[in-house]
Amino acid sequence: MSVFQLRRSLLYVPGNMPSMLQNIPIFESDGVMIDLEDAVPLSEKDAARILVRRFLENYQDRNKEIIVRINALDTKWGEDDLRAVLPALPDGIRLPKADTPEIVETLDTMLTEFEEELGLEIGRFKILPSIESAEGVINCIRTAKSTKRLIGLAFGAEDYTASLEIERTKKGEELFAARTRVVWACKAAGIQAIDTIFADAGDMEGLHRETQLIKTLGFSGKSLVNPRQIDVIHEVFAPKQEDVDYALQVVDAIQKAREMGTGVISLHGKMVDAPVVKRAVNTLKTAQAHGMIDIELDEEVIYGQE
């Protein structure tokens, strides 16, 4: 997998439904999160993890990132979920109720033990912790740096609003502070910020609005509950051609500036300096991941030599 993995859309798939599991290869999301937690009734926890394991063993030509949401580690199912599914080699584990960095560290240790037992490279299994309570939000800045296995933090608004004893609204004002803090934590740690689900699968306009909002805040992707939501999310996250064109011009301009021995230059009357270049490079990396451009982004040319 490339260093810059697109995770715009992570689709939940119920772990106890063969009809949904079998569709995983054809879903066009960047990844799926096979759910052993909330989508599985208590009486079926034992059966769901066996089904998921057998499905994954059978799904050899993986064409997207596979994450399994296990039950929380303080339940009686969490560890058995790991024992059942890890031999079938999912890419990562979504950890519910990651309220403290210590909870993530516990999973980190468990994954290391399983990797040793299975003869796998240490660090193979990634972790995506769910930040879904007031405590989780307060601690997320430390949680984001708790282990090298993290691919990001995933904000979970349904449980979060329940922990605050408030309603979740479509406008999402009540989530603003928490979302911002999760983004800070992720950016400071250099990992991806994944936003919460949008539960109303019939409201595409609302989904579009919310996705636009969370992209503006700095999230790199979103969890989703229905495959019909994938296209809307991808559309919002796709870089606009004009932004890509401008980013290419910025990189070109800064290279010319360096040749002239300066670190700042004017482009269409606007100043181009280091932060502008950094944003342009981010745009180009995203465009590259979307297959819109194919250029070599030479760090030295972009940032100059010492």
């Binding site: 059966a47 066996i50 499905f55």
Partner: peptide, 17 residues
């Protein structure tokens, strides 16, 4: 209309129970 993996998984779960 279950596929093989589901037949195996459901039977294994049933036997365990």
């Amino acid at each position: 209309g279950a596929l093989d993996y589901a037949i195996v998984a459901r039977l294994e779960a049933g036997l365990k129970r």
